[in-house]
Simulated assay, not measured.
Amino acid sequence: MGLLWELVSLPLAPVRGTVWVAEQVRDEAEREYYDAGKIRRQLERVEEARTNGEIDPAEAEAVEEALVARLVEANRRARQGGGR
């Protein structure tokens, strides 16, 4: 049945390829979004902006909370071996 299935599903090959590419893009975006080093650097930039008066303290706190939440999730994912 393998050959028959391949022939029947051949018209879906472009769709499968598109889905694969979309999954690769998603995986890379998640790797970057949850990169602990990048998150820490962003936290440092927020603190620097707050110190220099470039950002309102309330806004800085909101951004920091979001970044810390991402960092916690990044650490959770790292403990689980990078799985979603």
Rank of each mutant, 00 (worst) to 15 (best):
E48T: 15
L7D: 02
A36E: 15
I39Y: 03
Q42P: 10
E44W: 02
E30S: 00
E30D: 08
R70N: 14
T18L: 06
G53A: 08
R70F: 07
E30F: 05
D27I: 07
A29E: 10
A36H: 06
A29G: 05
A13S: 13
R40M: 13
A66M: 07
D35W: 09
R31K: 14
D56I: 08
K38V: 10
V8H: 00
R70Y: 08
T51G: 13
E28K: 07
P57L: 09
A58Q: 04
T18W: 07
P14G: 01
E64K: 15
E64T: 11
E73D: 11
V8R: 08
R70S: 12
R50S: 08
A69V: 00
E48I: 12
G17Q: 06
P57W: 03
E59L: 06
R77H: 03
R31I: 02
D27Y: 02
E61Y: 05
A22I: 07
K38P: 04
I39Q: 01
Y34L: 13
A60Q: 06
E32H: 03
E61T: 11
E59Y: 04
E23I: 05
L71Q: 11
V8G: 01
E6G: 07
A78C: 10
Q24E: 14
V46D: 08
E47T: 03
G37E: 14
A60L: 03
A66G: 11
R50K: 15
E30N: 09
E28V: 13
I55F: 00
R40L: 15
V68Y: 08
E54K: 14
R76Q: 15
D35M: 04
I55M: 05
R31H: 06
E44K: 02
E28N: 03
L43A: 04
R40K: 14
R45S: 08
L10V: 03
A49G: 01
N75W: 10
N52G: 02
E64M: 10
R16V: 11
T51E: 15
L7M: 09
I39T: 07
E59P: 01
L71A: 10
E65H: 09
R77V: 09
L10S: 12
A13V: 13
R76V: 15
E44I: 02
V63F: 07
R50G: 00
D56H: 12
A58H: 02
E32R: 12
G37Q: 12
A78F: 09
V19W: 09
V68Q: 12
R45E: 13
P11I: 10
D35F: 10
A78Y: 10
V63P: 02
R16K: 14
E6I: 09
L12S: 07
V25I: 15
L10H: 10
E23N: 05
T51A: 15
P57T: 05
E28Q: 09
A60N: 04
E28W: 05
P57A: 08
R77A: 03
A62S: 03
N75P: 00
V63S: 03
R31Q: 12
R70K: 15
N75V: 13
A29Q: 08
A74Q: 07
A78K: 14
W20D: 13
